[in-house]
Design a protein around this nucleic acid. Structure first.
Lengths: 343, 343
DNA sequence: TTGAAAGCGCTAACAA
DNA sequence: TTGTTAGCGCTTTCAA
C-alpha cells in the first residue's frame, strides 16, 4: 500500500535547495534570467518530490484560468458531442481545459450556466443557444464583463459576437433543389420553431429554391412542428391528409424526417417512389436506416474547432479596440442516399 | 452600447458600506453571527454593484475547487455523451462543475488528462479507461494524492477504487439465452480485445449460456476483432467462410453487429431467418435500422448519475479510514427487436 | 455582532 | 542571476 503524497508546493522545493520560491517558480517556467544549472536542479527536485503546480493559485495570480466554458443543450445529442470533440482538440493544443454545462434546452439552466462560468473565471464562453431562450441578457452580461463569447450553430446576430454557423440557407436550398431534380413537384416542408434562426433559414432556403425553379409555393405544404420524432410523425400525418399529397418532403432535421418516414410507411406509401425525403444534420442513424436517409452534413467537428479558434482570436485581441467579432459560415454538404434517389 | 463592468470584489462592497470584507463575506455566506439587517444591506449592495464571487480565490482559500474531472475516450460516442449527461445532472445539483478530457482511446492522452486534472485541483476524477491503456500508474497517482477516483463502464478491479459498471456478463448471458430460445444452435460470437474487462465478461456470459443450455462451445464460432463496423464486417466474413455457417451471432457491441449485418446482407442471407443477430450497447441507430437491431441496453444516464454520487460519497468520507470503495453493478436490459425474433 | 490580520500558492516588479 | 516583497480575492481565527 503506497503512501499518500502530501501537498508539495514551490516552498518545499525552495527549502530543499536553499533558494527562494521565486527562483523555483522562474526555473520551472524556464525564465531566461535563470541559470541552466539552477533550472536543472530545480526540475530534478520537483520530480523527486512529485511536485504538481497548483493551477488555481497561478490562475488567481495571473487573472487567467485557462478554462473555456461550453454551454450546450445536451451532451446526449450526437451533434453536440461532435462539436465538443472539436473544441476539446483545439483547447488542449493550446493548454486549455473545457468546462461543460448542459441546459436541457431550458432558459433557466442556461442563465445559471452563464453565472457559474463567470464565477469560475473562465477565459471565454462558447455557447449554443437553447430553443427555449428568447431573453438574451445573460449573454450580454458575458460581453459586459469583457469575457469573449463565441456562439456556434444556434447563433443570434443581434448580440454582435463571433459565431460559427453552417449555411443553413444553402443546405436547405441544395436539399430542395435536389428533390426538384429528382422530378418532384409537390415538395412539402416540415419546419421547426421559427424564432430559432437556423430553422427559419432552412425554411427560406426551401422557399427560394422553389422560386428559382419556378415551382409555386403552396402554404398547405408547409407545416411546423417542434423538431422531434413524434412531431415529425404528426406533421407528416397532416400532409398525408391533404387532398393531393406531396411527392417529396424536406424535413427541418433528421429526427423529424425519421418520424415522417414512419408515418409514410404506416400509410403504405413507398419511399422514395411515392414520397422522397431529405433530412438535415447527418445524424448517424440515417446511414443505417432502410431506406437510408438523405440529409445535409454540418461539419460538426470542424464547427467545434473553428469556434475554439475564434475564442483564442478574441482572447488575444481582447484589449484592442479595433477588433471586431467575426462570423464564420461553414458550407454544409448534401448527402444523397436512398430516401431521395429515384431510379 | 453598454459599459464594461469592471471587476468588483468583496472590498468594493465593503467600502460602499463602510464595513470590512470579512463581514461582507460572512453576510453573503449567511453566517449565523451576522445581523439580518447587515445581510440585507450587503446583499443589496452586491446586487447593485453586480458582484460575482471569484470562485478561484475561494477555491484557493478553501482548498476545494468544486470541480469534477471526467475522462472519457470520446465525446462523439453516444454512450459517453449519455453518461456525461447523468454526471452533469448530479454534479449541478450539488453545486459542482464538470471538466471534460478526451483521450481518443490513447494512453498518452489519458496520462496527460490525469496530470491536467491534478494541477487543476479537481475534487475528484471520474474515468472510463481507454482501450489502449494497460499501465495504470497514473490512476494510482490520483489515489496517492488523496483525490477520489471513480471508474465507470471500463473499470479495473485491481485499482481498488469505486466503480459503476453494467453487468456485462449477465447482459451477454441474456442475449445468448435469447438466441437459444429462438431456436438457434450454432451461435457465433464476435468478440473484442480481451484485455478490456467488459469485452472479456461478455465472452464469458456467452460461453456460460451455451454451457447451461447444453450447447457445445465451438472455437471456430468465436472470432475476435477491434470493435468497429469494419472489424464487424471482417469477422462476419470469416464466419461466413466456415464449412457450416452459424445460425446466429452475438456481437460484442452494436457497431460490430452493424458491420456483421452488412456482411450478412452482402452474402444474400436473411436476418433473422438465416442468421439472427444481437448487439450490445443500444446505440440509437439500432432502433431505426432495417431490420431493427436487438441489443442490450446499458442504463447510461443512470451510470453517470451513480458515478457522480459515488464520487460525493468518497469525497465526504475522504478523511475516514474505514471508508471502502464501492462497486456498483447496474443490470442491463435485453431489447428484442427484429434482428433476432424469428416467427 | 464585527474588525484585524493572516494566509491559501503562485508570480512579478523592483532591488541587489 | 537571484532575493525581497507584495498581492491576486477570499475565508477564518482570534480579538474586541
Amino acid at each position: 500500500m503506497s503512501e499518500i503524497i502530501l501537498k508539495v508546493t514551490l516552498m518545499d522545493i525552495a527549502r530543499e535547495l536553499n533558494i527562494t520560491a521565486a527562483t523555483v517558480s522562474r526555473a520551472l517556467n524556464d525564465h531566461p534570467a535563470i541559470k541552466d544549472a539552477t533550472k536543472k536542479l530545480v526540475k530534478e527536485a520537483a520530480q523527486k518530490l512529485q511536485y504538481q503546480p497548483n493551477k488555481i493559485a497561478s490562475s488567481l495570480r495571473l487573472g487567467k484560468s485557462n478554462i473555456i466554458g461550453v454551454i450546450i443543450p445536451s451532451a446526449e445529442i450526437n451533434f453536440f458531442g461532435s462539436v465538443i470533440h472539436g473544441i476539446e482538440k483545439v483547447a488542449n493544443e493550446n493548454n486549455y481545459n473545457v468546462l461543460i454545462y448542459q441546459t436541457n434546452e431550458l432558459y433557466e439552466y442556461e442563465k445559471r450556466g452563464v453565472q457559474t462560468f463567470l464565477q469560475s473565471q473562465v477565459d471565454g464562453v462558447l455557447a449554443s443557444i437553447s430553443k427555449d431562450t428568447i431573453n438574451l441578457d445573460h449573454y450580454s452580461e458575458i460581453k459586459k464583463r469583457g469575457v469573449p463569447l463565441v456562439l456556434f450553430d444556434r447563433a443570434i446576430d443581434t448580440l454582435g459576437v463571433s459565431a460559427v454557423v453552417v449555411d443553413d440557407y444553402a443546405g436547405a436550398f441544395a436539399a430542395t433543389k435536389h428533390l426538384i431534380q429528382q422530378g418532384c413537384r409537390r415538395i412539402a416542408h416540415i419546419g421547426g420553431q421559427q424564432h430559432v434562426s437556423i430553422f427559419n433559414q432552412r425554411l427560406k432556403g426551401y422557399i427560394d429554391a422553389l422560386n428559382v425553379f419556378g415551382i409555386p409555393v403552396d402554404d398547405d405544404l408547409i407545416v411546423y412542428g417542434k423538431v422531434s420524432i413524434d412531431s415529425g410523425r404528426d406533421c407528416m400525418n397532416k400532409l398525408l391528409a391533404l387532398a393531393i399529397i406531396p411527392d417529396a418532403v424536406f424535413a427541418v432535421e433528421d429526427f423529424t424526417a425519421l418520424g415522417a418516414m414512419q408515418s409514410i410507411k404506416a400509410a403504405n406509401k413507398k419511399i422514395p417512389d411515392d414520397i422522397a425525403i431529405v433530412g438535415f444534420a447527418n445524424e448517424p442513424f440515417g446511414e443505417y436506416m432502410s431506406p437510408s436517409l438523405s440529409t445535409v452534413n454540418q461539419q460538426t467537428v470542424q464547427m467545434g474547432e473553428e469556434a475554439a479558434k475564434l475564442f483564442f482570436e478574441s482572447f488575444h485581441n481582447r484589449n484592442r479596440f479595433d477588433y471586431n467579432p467575426r462570423k464564420l459560415v461553414l458550407q454544409p454538404e448534401l448527402i444523397c442516399r436512398q430516401s431521395s434517389l429515384k431510379k
